[in-house]
Design a protein around this nucleic acid. Structure first.
Length: 264
DNA sequence: TCGCTTGTTGATGG
DNA sequence: GCCATCAACAAGCG
C-alpha cells in the first residue's frame, strides 16, 4: 500500500534513472487511467521534452518535463497498487497503463487494481487543481507547523493525521505506527492533546518516516507495530499485551490498549 | 458468493 | 466551515 515512503522510493528511482533523459514517445495501454489529455495528445505534448527532477508532495508524485522552465507535468497517484518501473534494457513492460519511452530507458506506470492514475497538467497549471488542497509534507515537518495544522480542530487525532489537507503523506499504517510509538490513543481528541503528547507524536513521526523512507516502505520487522497488524492475534512488541483491532476514522486500527491510554 | 482491505472523493447529517 | 459516517471505486484474497 503506497504511502509516503513508497512514493519517495519511486521519486528517487525516477531521479536516479530517468531524469535528464529526453522523451522519444509515449505508449498508453489503459486510456481510462489517463486524465486531462488523450493518448495522442500526451505524445504530442511530451515528445522531444526532457524529464526534469521529479517532485513529491505527500502521496503525489510530479513528473515534470522541462527545457529551461517547467513544462507539462504528469501528476501521478499510486492509490492501492500503483508502481513505477524504469527499464534501461529497452524492453518496457507490456502491461503498463502509461509508458514514457525515453532516450536509453522506459518509464512505466503500472497499477494492478486500476485505482489511481496519471493526470496531465499543461505548463504553469497548479498541481492542486488535480491533488486538491494538501497540507505540508509530513517528511521533515517541524513541530510548530504540526501544532499549527492541528490547532483548533475538533475530532480525533488519527482522523486528523489521515486527512491530507492537514498533513500530506500519512496513511493508515504509518499513523497507527506513529501513535503507538507516541503512546497516544487513536481517538485522542486533538483539542485535548498535551504538549508532551504533541512532542511525542512529532518526534515519532520523524523517526517512523526517516526509517520508512530509508527502507522504501513501512518496515514490518519484529520491533514494528506494522509487523503485527496482519497477525491473527497480534501482540505489542513493547509490552506483549494483545493488541486491539477496531475501526477509527473508518479504517482498521491496530493499537495497544495497555500503552496507548484511552479507547479506540 | 460475500465481505474485507486500501486512499480518495463526494453525499449526507449533526 | 468542520467533523463523522457511509458509499463508491477495483480487484485480490480468504
Amino acid at each position: 500500500m503506497p504511502e509516503l515512503p513508497d512514493v519517495e522510493h519511486h521519486r528517487r528511482l525516477v531521479a536516479e534513472r530517468a531524469a535528464g533523459r529526453r522523451v522519444l514517445g509515449v505508449r498508453v495501454g489503459d486510456p481510462a487511467l489517463l486524465e486531462g489529455t488523450t493518448p495522442a495528445g500526451l505524445g504530442r505534448s511530451l515528445t522531444g521534452r526532457t524529464l526534469a527532477a521529479p517532485r513529491r508532495h505527500g502521496k503525489w508524485l510530479l513528473l515534470v518535463t522541462a527545457d529551461g522552465a517547467d513544462g507539462p507535468t504528469l501528476v501521478v497517484h499510486f492509490r492501492m497498487s500503483g508502481e513505477l518501473v524504469v527499464d534501461e534494457d529497452g524492453a518496457a513492460p507490456g502491461d503498463a497503463a502509461v509508458t514514457l519511452l525515453l532516450e536509453g530507458a522506459a518509464l512505466a506506470y503500472r497499477t494492478r487494481r486500476r485505482l489511481g492514475g496519471i493526470s496531465y497538467l499543461r505548463a504553469g497549471v497548479d498541481p492542486a487543481t488535480v491533488t486538491g488542497p494538501l497540507g505540508p509534507d509530513a517528511l521533515g515537518l517541524d513541530r510548530s507547523t504540526l501544532a499549527a495544522r492541528l490547532e483548533g480542530r475538533r475530532g480525533g487525532l488519527k482522523s486528523a493525521l489521515l486527512n491530507q489537507r492537514v498533513v500530506a503523506g500519512l496513511g493508515n499504517e504509518l499513523v497507527d505506527e506513529i501513535l503507538w510509538r507516541a503512546r497516544t490513543a487513536p481517538d485522542q481528541a486533538v483539542g485535548d492533546l498535551t504538549h508532551a503528547q504533541l512532542r511525542a507524536v512529532h518526534r515519532e513521526m520523524g523517526v517512523v518516516l526517516r526509517q520508512s523512507v530509508r527502507a522504501g516502505r513501512v518496515p514490518s520487522g519484529p520491533t514494528w507495530l506494522n509487523g503485527q497488524r496482519s497477525q491473527p492475534h497480534p501482540r505489542c512488541p513493547h509490552c506483549d499485551a494483545l493488541l486491539e483491532r477496531s475501526r477509527v476514522a473508518g479504517r482498521t486500527t491496530v493499537w495497544c490498549p495497555h500503552e496507548q491510554s484511552g479507547r479506540a
